[in-house]
Amino acid sequence: MNTTLAEDTVKQQAIENVVRMSGVSKVFPNGNVAVDNVNIDIAEGEFISFVGPSGCGKSTIFKMISGLIDNTQGSIEILGSQMNPMQQKRTNVGFVFQDSTLLPWRSVLENVMLPLEFQKKSKKEKIEEAAQALELVGLKDYTKSLPRQLSGGMKMRVSIARALVAKPKLLLMDEPFGALDEITRQSLQSELLRIWESQKMTVLFITHNVFEAVYLSTRVAVMTPSPGKVASALDVRLPFPRNDEVRTTHEFSDIVAQVSRDLKF
């Protein structure tokens, strides 16, 4: 009985830590050490942003978590398992890249349906689920549109819908708003928080914008210059739901200042 209880406790702790990186390093074949001895636990339901100078290994960390590349040393546990994420159900991890990466010849609905194409569901079910994902990001009236007919912000919404359609437990976002104007960017930040709160996902987000990181996150992980390490992980003690007024508070400014100080190595 005690052994079973202990095993259940360990299993529950593993689930609560959606991502656990222990002593993780990545050395590329050319000898470049991109990431060195990264240690971080990310709990279920967190929204954690990674900030740091260009080339510090933020994207490399995300690619290792998603299974696109292997780590050289250390261990990475995803959803309680040390298996390569690509060996798990593909619905567990979603990825939104810097570019919307939409297929230009496919409609918005058809682009969102891509992750469902190899699932054993009827075409009607796939269409319904893709339509629901588009409604979630505010694009229910654009199902038949082609990517060239959309603005940059709308294309990114489609990319987010495509990542959400498979209902991932973990969503990785690599500078998704970097190429957008500030007005569109702030609008999508608020939309992303609304989606995160409604879907109860764990989100890992890369940005170079400290204000964006603080506005979105429950924690901000600050990385050192290459080879990248996690120098600090600051709690963002601002209440949810958040609105634009939060950006003008002293509390917000204080956290931005702390993250900015930690970025100065």
Rank of each mutant, 00 (worst) to 15 (best):
A179H: 10
S25F: 10
M113D: 02
V93Y: 13
K123S: 09
L180T: 09
V38W: 03
M21H: 01
R148I: 05
V51S: 01
G138D: 07
R247A: 03
L139N: 07
E117V: 03
R157S: 10
L114F: 06
E129S: 07
P85I: 01
K89F: 10
L216S: 00
V256A: 04
T4D: 12
P104L: 07
G74C: 14
V214N: 00
V259Q: 02
K126W: 13
K264Q: 12
N17D: 11
V96W: 08
E197G: 09
L188G: 05
V27E: 04
A43T: 06
K124C: 03
A133H: 06
L216D: 00
G74E: 11
L193S: 05
F97L: 07
I183M: 13
R148T: 06
Q82Y: 14
L234I: 05
E212K: 01
V35H: 03
N17T: 08
V35Q: 02
N39H: 10
L102C: 08
I48Y: 04
D70L: 13
D262E: 13
F97Q: 04
G67W: 06
A161C: 10
S25H: 06
G228Q: 03
L109M: 11
E245Y: 05
M173K: 12
A34K: 01
E44R: 15
E191T: 07
P29M: 04
R162V: 03
T249L: 08
T101H: 14
Y142F: 15
C56I: 11
K11V: 10
K155T: 05
P104V: 11
I65Y: 03
L114A: 02
V24G: 02
Q186I: 06
E129M: 10
T101F: 14
S253M: 04
N84K: 15
D99G: 12
P104M: 11
V51D: 01
E77Q: 15
Y142T: 07
E245T: 03
P239Y: 00
W196H: 11
P29C: 04
D141W: 15
S232M: 07
L136R: 13
L263S: 00
T60H: 06
A131G: 08
E245I: 01
G55S: 09
N209R: 03
N37K: 14
A163P: 06
C56P: 02
V33L: 14
S232Q: 07
G57Q: 02
P225V: 12
I127K: 15
N71E: 14
E125F: 14
L170V: 10
I255T: 02
I160N: 04
L238A: 06
W105S: 07
Q82I: 10
S253G: 05
A133T: 04
L146T: 05
N243T: 06
E44A: 13
S187E: 11
Q13R: 13
A257V: 06
I160W: 05
A231Y: 12
T218L: 03
T249V: 07
L146Q: 11
D174Q: 13
L216C: 01
N243A: 08
Q87T: 11
D235S: 12
V236Q: 00
F240G: 03
I61D: 03
R261Q: 12
D174A: 09
L172V: 09
V230D: 00
I127Q: 15
E129H: 14
L146M: 12
V165P: 07
L192Q: 08
Y215P: 00
L172Q: 12
D41R: 05
L114H: 00
V10D: 08
T3D: 11
G80N: 09
G74I: 13
G153M: 06
P241F: 01
V38A: 02
S22Y: 12
N84T: 08
I127M: 15
